[in-house]
Amino acid sequence: MKPTISTAASKIGSSLTLKIFAVCFVSTHIPLLALVIYLFWGFDNNPMPVLGAIVAATLVGTVFSLTAVWMLLRPLHEVAEAMKKYRAVGVVPQISSARSDEVGVVANGVTKLIADLDATLSQLRVQASTDMLTGLGNRRWMKEIGTLEVIRAARENEVVSIIVFDLDHFKSINDEFGHEIGDRVLIAAGATIEQNLRPYDAAARIGGEEFCVVLPRTSAQDAVAVAERLRKSLAVQTVPPLVAGRVTASFGVYCGDARNQTLEDMMAAADQQLYAAKKAGRNTVHWGSANPKDDSMRGRR
Results as ranks from 00 to 15, higher is better:
L230Q: 15
R155M: 04
I37R: 08
A88D: 13
V224F: 07
G281P: 00
I173Q: 08
S161E: 00
D271N: 08
K85S: 12
T120L: 05
I12D: 06
G42Q: 12
G90C: 02
L39C: 09
S96Q: 05
G256L: 01
R300T: 12
C24P: 06
L39N: 03
T248K: 14
A153K: 04
T284Y: 02
H29M: 15
V214S: 03
R298W: 07
E158K: 14
D265F: 01
R300C: 09
G178Y: 01
L242T: 14
V69Q: 13
V247Q: 11
D201V: 12
S129R: 14
E176N: 08
R282W: 03
N157K: 07
S15Q: 02
I54P: 10
E144K: 08
I30E: 11
W41A: 09
V150D: 03
A128S: 13
Q273W: 03
M48H: 04
E158F: 05
D116I: 05
V110H: 13
K171M: 10
M132N: 02
D101A: 03
D116K: 04
P3M: 05
K293V: 13
G207T: 09
A8D: 07
E78T: 10
V226P: 01
I151M: 04
L121W: 13
G178I: 06
Q272N: 12
P199K: 15
M1A: 14
S65I: 00
A191M: 09
Q195L: 01
D295P: 00
H29K: 06
P292C: 06
D166K: 00
G104F: 12
K19C: 04
V239D: 05
M1G: 00
G137P: 03
L263T: 00
S219F: 08
G90T: 00
T111N: 14
T62G: 09
V150E: 09
D175K: 02
S10I: 03
S129I: 13
F165K: 09
N291W: 10
T262K: 04
D222R: 13
S289Y: 10
V89E: 15
A53H: 12
R229N: 12
G256R: 00
A249D: 07
G109A: 06
S96F: 10
A223C: 04
E144M: 14
Q94V: 02
L73R: 05
G104I: 05
L51Y: 11
N45A: 15
A115Y: 10
G104P: 07
G137T: 12
A53T: 15
Y254K: 07
T58I: 07
A34R: 10
